[in-house]
Each structure stands twice: as structure tokens, then as C-alpha cells.
Write a protein that binds this DNA or RNA. Structure first.
Lengths: 182, 182
DNA sequence: TATTGTTATACTCTATAACTATA
DNA sequence: TATAGTTATAGAGTATAACAATA
């Protein structure tokens, strides 16, 4: 990467005029908060997803292919934010566990369509219940309307971020969140 | 990990009564949204933090020790959610760059107090400005009040998660699956 | 004996590159 | 030539274990 200006450490080492920091507490840093909450979720969901190949990723493959229909591996990888090579390993494990199947794409013999098996769908129901409990516990300090707000705002940010990517992800928009929750 | 019941894949492979999935779209999954947004932030902040040893972690060390005063490595590691061995390497790099200093703790000769140098404070000011711009860009699709709401809600969740126990909150949250959970 | 911090090692996750089979 | 998927390999990041100094 060509940097037009010296990097932070270099400039700092020169001892440029020191000035008082604004003293923003780390708690106000979006990156810190995102990291803390994200790590908490990964750890917490790890218990709910114990035994599922791929953990959170495995769940997302099941949930996506179940709700949106069979998908090609490349599309699935893009939507879930993983490399296509990682997707191969992930699907290998899920297939071995009998949770998904690779079917030939009638429209393109190079591609494989990924779909959950009957067992995969059955497992998904169980996982969704556990995950919802985990999520609710994590959001426990927020009241009902705050939870809904947080979910909605986060979801909007995520969908926007996902749409920015040079991918095909245009189908997801009419999202009903979860008014039927509880 | 002792699992009292067969894992997901094992149970699914047995072919237990298949039933219709609830069809929750992956966009409604908190884990998916958190992952997407977190990855986006890491990627975006990478540009703002270019040249800073440790990237986001390096910034958090500077921000924390600047706003909360000198801290011992172990406390810093716990607060930032990294292993103490990782903290050693991170501080090595930050110290070499002249951004922080290790001072002996007068109260405990085993411990070191981490404090930003003058250069570190100066660099922090610059970083805070850049990061704030990055954050605002990422939250771009939200209006002012929505941004404030999201920041507040996320911050409350993060502070709660961090308060439980920065190192062992996974164990606490693992019990969220119990029916006794609220 | 327990704890702080360091070091060396090993492991996990992810990305890069080369390969095949199709298009 | 370009693309979907696979495989092998390398790299970054992280955790585990052993160690020295101190409590």
C-alpha cells in the first residue's frame, strides 16, 4: 500500500508538538463496543451451537438455504462473508453430518446447489430455538422496545454493508424482522 | 466439553422426525448482522489505523490508558478482551513505536503500568478524528437520532458484557439456554 | 504457593495459488 | 478466456505451557 503521508508511529516518533488528548473513553468507541458484543455473542452462541459443524457459519448456511432456497456455493460464501475455499470445507463437514446436500445446478454444470436435508431442517428448528434464547439473554438489559430498536438498526446497517459488496445480494429487502417473536 | 445429550449432527443423522422449519431469514439472525457489521468496521477502520501497531487493539490501548490512566497489563488485557500473551506482543510493538511506555508499578514490583507517551497522546488525537469519520460513514444510512440510539444501545450492551467478567462471561452466558432463564 | 509478565510452541482460522471441469 | 469448485500451502492471529521474578 502506498502511503502518501508517514504512518502514525513514524510521525509520533518524530515528537511532533504534543497536545492534550480529547480523552474520549474507550467505551464510546464503536469498534470497542462492537468487538465486545461480537465476542460475547460468538462465545455465547458457541454453547448453543455445540456439535454443529462450522458453528455460527454452519447455522447460517442452514438458515439461509432453508429460508431462501438452494444457493450456489459462491453466492452463499459472498452472502455469509466467507472465502469460497472456506465454504468448501464448511460444506464438506455439513454434508458429512447429513445436514446439507450438494445438488447439480441444471443451469450450470460447474455449479452446485446447496440445500438442507430433512435432517438439516429438523436440526435448524432446534438451533433456532436455542439461539433465540441466547440472543434474548444477551439483550437482557434492554427492554422490549429497545431490543426491537437495536435489532432493527443493526439489521439495517448489516444489510447496507452487505449490499455495498460487489455481490448479487439484491433479493433481501422485504424483511419482516420478528414481530411474531415470543 | 461433556455433552449430556448427543450433538446436533448426531441427532440429525439419526433421522428424527423431520418437521417444517420456521423459515427465519438469516438477516434476522443477530449473529449474522453482528458479524457483517463488525467485519465492515474492522475493514473500514483498517484504513484509518494504517501504520498503527496492533491496529484497532493498538488504538484501544492508547484510548484506554489515556482516558483512564495507567493500567497494568493484565487489567488492560482483560478490559480489551485479549490474552495476556497477546498483550505482551502488542505492547512490545507500541513501545517500539514510541507510543506507550512500561513503568514499574510502585505497589507491585512484578507489575508494569502502561501509559501513553507524549507522542502516543498526540497520535491518539489524530486517530480519534479519523475513526470518528469512519464511524459516521458506516452509520451513514441512519439519521441523527438513530445513530445516537444505536450507539447508546450498543454501548450499554458492551458495558454490561464487559462487567459480567471480561474473561469468563462465556460460562455465564452458556447457562442462558437453561429453561430457568428469564 | 499464587501471580505478573515473558517466551516458545502449537493450534485455529483464513487467504493465496494452482488445478479441474465446465462455460 | 473466464468462472465454479476443489485442494494444497502459507500466513495471521490466538491460545497453551513452561519459565523467571515477585508477592
Amino acid at each position: 500500500m502506498s502511503s502518501p503521508s508517514p504512518d502514525v508511529a513514524t510521525r509520533a516518533a518524530r515528537g511532533v508538538e504534543p497536545q492534550a488528548a480529547s480523552g474520549v473513553p474507550v467505551e464510546a468507541d464503536l469498534g470497542w463496543a462492537l468487538g465486545v458484543v461480537f465476542r460475547q455473542y460468538v462465545k455465547a452462541s458457541g454453547a448453543a451451537l455445540e456439535g454443529l459443524p462450522g458453528g455460527p457459519r454452519g447455522y447460517q448456511v442452514l438458515a439461509t438455504t432453508n429460508s431462501e432456497g438452494p444457493k450456489r456455493q459462491l453466492d452463499l460464501a459472498a452472502q455469509l462473508g466467507v472465502d469460497r475455499t472456506v465454504m468448501t470445507y464448511l460444506l464438506d463437514d455439513l454434508e458429512k453430518a447429513g445436514l446439507v446436500q450438494r445438488r447439480p445446478d441444471p443451469a450450470d454444470r460447474r455449479a452446485r446447489l446447496i440445500a438442507p436435508t430433512e435432517q438439516g431442517i429438523e436440526a435448524l428448528c432446534d438451533l433456532e430455538r436455542k439461539l433465540r434464547a441466547t440472543e434474548d439473554h444477551m439483550l437482557g438489559i434492554l427492554d422490549e422496545s429497545e431490543r426491537a430498536s437495536f435489532r432493527m438498526l443493526l439489521q439495517r446497517l448489516a444489510m447496507k454493508a452487505n449490499a455495498i459488496d460487489p455481490l448479487h445480494n439484491a433479493c433481501v429487502l422485504a424483511e419482516a424482522d420478528d414481530p411474531a417473536d415470543t
